[in-house]
Amino acid sequence: MSAEKVIRLKVKRKDQMDSESYWEEFAIPYRPNMNVISALMEIQRNPVNAEGTKVRSVAWEYNCLEEVCGACSMRINGKVRQACSTLVEKLEQPIQLEPMETFPVEKDLVVDRQRMFDALQKIKGWIPIDGTYAMGSGPLISSREQQEAYKFSTCMTCGCCLDACPNVNSGSPFIGPQALAQTKYFNMHPTGKLTKNERLEVVIGDEGISNCGNSQNCVEVCPKDIPLTTALAELNHEANRYALWSWLKK
């Protein structure tokens, strides 16, 4: 009988929000073309750790399994990425899985990404079209602008950019690259432009762009290749002008 190939995993676990984290190792049977999600599913199927003890199965989040939902972000061998699009064969073993600790960790690899959704509310991440009467159709958008906007529309609020940013942490008020890139996205829409200044108020606010340190990790780790740093630089330009002119108008 040939020795079965195994995959070794080392998971940073946490039983509940207020308890201490601990590491636990697992050895699971290898199958070709496994991704990190299928490895975690294997643990779920047979929750036995490397010492052979039956344990609580590892908790993590996932939905789409094709890198569009943003739910399965975690630190894999240190770097933040999507578990679904990370192939086990391309990773060094033991595969180290950690939650994105920039966010509150709820259980094992599950984090609470609420701050990003709150941030979208703060920047008014929507196009205001509601009214008491029909406003008619909006202005046309050139296909070039549509192409540019499309990239920003693919943001899946996964949290990778916030987790890799050295300036997003508990000691800093930074709202993060995701919300700022979305500000650019909604500000470039002809109807979204109507609330542009309200969004720029957040950009020049305490949580805003002044917290960006130009490490540019965000654009490197973004699984959707969103030009985050371009949006940040454009917002710098807009924010500087807006801050100066709105002050001179006082």
Partner: peptide, 22 residues
């Protein structure tokens, strides 16, 4: 003050601009 509120992570993210940041 700025360097005190940033949390350097060049050990994990060895990108050029991140090193320059550090």
């Amino acid at each position: 003050y700025l360097s005190m509120i940033s949390k350097s992570n060049t050990q994990t993210y060895k990108y050029e601009r991140n090193r320059l940041f550090f």
